[in-house]
Design a protein around this nucleic acid. Structure first.
Length: 124
RNA sequence: GGAGUCGGCCGGACAGUCGCUAUCGCGGGUGCUCGAAUUUUCCGUGAUGGGAGUUCGGGGCCGCGAUGGAGGAAAGUCCGGGCUCCGCAGGGCAGAGUGCCAGGUAACGCCUGGGGGGCGUGAGCCCACGGAAAGUGCCGCAGAAAAUAUACCGCCUAAGCAGUUCGCUGCCGGUAAGGGUGAAAUGGUGCGGUAAGAGCGCACCGCGCAGCUGGCAACAGGUGUGGCAGGGUAAACCCCACUCGGAGCAAGACCAAAUAGGAAUCCCAUGGUGCGGCCCGUACCGGAUUCGGGUAGGUCGCUUGAGGUGUGUGGUGACACACAUCCCAGAUGAAUGACUGUUCUUGACAGAACCCGGCUUACAGGCCGACUCCUUUU
């Protein structure tokens, strides 16, 4: 399996997984336009979940674009990430340009990686 | 050349790398799952039994390869169908919708053709376009009066009465021509007529009625006749004609763990516990297998269809028919993308969610065809 792939094992697929992260998120990375919640998982690698509300991003085209950008960025940086569940939440006003979001996200992944390393917490 | 009308089409392109998803093919890659076989083997009971392995086949997963992968509006969810489930003897009422005529269609509030009215020099465009003598309601402001009519400014003084300076004045009246108000004032114009006037009479126009001609019809034309009914509003109630059962793919169908409870059959023990002093009796308490309901979850529904394209035939046309040919998204925490490069005209509105036919709304820019008006040149 290549590190660049983005199969079903790297996505959060059911309600239960989402609820676990919402209930006990260990880390959160906040930005004006989005919020990232993180919780270590027992699996083999990081998994991504997306929450893009219709009220936050009104048009379907914009929602799709944001999802694709975040997924793409996650896919590229997956090898650097510890085994955690990540939820990307859109906040209102996330209608910024595509390239802007794409350049911001790597910083968030690096920050996430360092924070997990420093605290050293893992799934017990 | 300029201005414009109508109809149709396109909605950046190409290459490379890395991804997502569906289908197909290949691969003894597979520690998952289902079924069958088994001369294999292990465990266990009081009894039926329960695993493990091997072989074969299917599915899933994994790898590789090939191919396909958002729209003209996918949108708004405003109409009409298909498809599901529920309801339903038949009829009526209520409610909702539609509303010139004919045709097309599975159906429509859609489309086509025609009629009528309005706008435009024109190509063309627009119309909720049945009924106001069935009834009810409403009609601001202005105006005398907004609907069983009425008389503000006016006009007249013929007839009757009174007065008189014999000019006329007043009363009783007549009238709706003119003015003024308004979106709208009880047909219009002209002539006659009259005291002044008035469909009071006549001509033409308008309107109503009757029959005639053309047309399937809406309607049009012309003939005769009636002096004229009588404001507007029906996207006010209403009347008339026609149409309509309800819910929606979270429809619906199937498979089905774990846990709890239920039913049936078999097995052995005639055992334990409660009631009881004891027997009898009665209630509850095992194991195995099977069955039905059913939750999480999964599968189907799910894309071959009132389908696209081409040709021919019929029709003014919407469209229909025949033949040939093609298969063109099917996701489900929800795919159809990202990056790099080249190029042009620098890319708008915008994302399928059961499927079709419409309507409406949004939209950078571009292409094609037909037609109209103006101007110039030959």
């Amino acid at each position: 399996m290549s590190g660049q792939s983005f199969g079903r094992d790297k996505r959060m697929l059911d309600q239960a997984s989402f609820q676990r992260v919402f209930d006990e998120a260990c880390y959160r990375i906040s930005h004006k336009n989005y919020l990232i919640l993180v919780r270590p998982n027992s699996g083999s690698g990081a998994r991504l979940g997306l929450v893009i509300g219709k009220k936050k991003v009104p048009t379907a085209v914009a929602r799709n674009q944001i999802k694709r950008l975040v997924r793409e960025s996650f896919r590229r940086h997956w090898t650097q990430l510890p085994p955690v569940d990540v939820i990307f939440l859109a906040r209102s006003g996330l209608n910024i340009s595509a390239s802007q979001l794409y350049t911001q996200l790597p910083k968030a992944w690096i920050k996430l990686q360092e924070e997990v390393k420093n605290t050293g917490r893992t799934e017990s």
